[in-house]
Amino acid sequence: MLGIAAAALFFIAFLINAAEISTNHVFSSGNIMILGLMLLALHVAGIGGARGARVRRR
């Protein structure tokens, strides 16, 4: 799920950069890309996955 959110943030950052939309410093394309990288790192680390922990039953 975090991978999808990261892809969405990368797309928004691309649109801001490609259209040369002027935004304030908080929502600049670089900051949105950093947020996307953070979400991608969390996804790769296994946080926010769709699967829960497997429990073995006897």
Rank of each mutant, 00 (worst) to 15 (best):
R58V: 06
F27W: 11
I4R: 13
R57M: 08
L9N: 15
V26P: 07
E20A: 13
F27I: 14
I4Y: 03
G48R: 03
S22C: 05
A53W: 00
H43S: 13
E20Q: 08
I34Y: 08
H25Y: 07
L15W: 00
A53L: 08
M38L: 15
A7M: 02
F27C: 15
N17K: 11
S22H: 15
R56G: 10
M1E: 12
S29T: 15
R56Q: 04
A6M: 08
G49M: 13
A19S: 04
A18H: 00
G46Y: 01
R58K: 03
G36P: 02
V44W: 00
A45S: 12
A19I: 04
F11Y: 08
A45C: 03
I16K: 04
G36E: 01
G46L: 02
L37Q: 10
A8Q: 07
A8H: 02
A5H: 08
T23P: 00
A13E: 03
N17C: 00
G48P: 02
L15P: 00
H43G: 07
I4H: 14
S29H: 09
L37K: 03
A53G: 10
I12D: 05
I21C: 07
S29R: 05
A41F: 07
R57F: 03
M1N: 10
L9S: 13
I32R: 11
A8E: 08
A53Y: 01
I47D: 03
A6G: 12
G3K: 07
G30C: 03
S22A: 14
G3M: 02
H43N: 14
V26H: 09
M38W: 04
A18D: 04
I16L: 06
L2E: 11
V55Y: 06
V55C: 11
A13K: 05
R58Y: 02
F10Q: 15
L9H: 06
I47H: 10
A50T: 14
T23E: 02
L9D: 13
F10N: 15
A13I: 02
I16H: 00
E20K: 13
A19L: 04
N31E: 14
L39D: 04
I12K: 15
G52Q: 05
A41C: 09
G52L: 04
R51T: 10
R51E: 12
A8D: 09
R56N: 06
G36A: 11
L15F: 01
R51G: 14
L39M: 10
A5L: 03
G48C: 05
I47S: 06
F14L: 10
E20L: 02
L42C: 11
A53F: 02
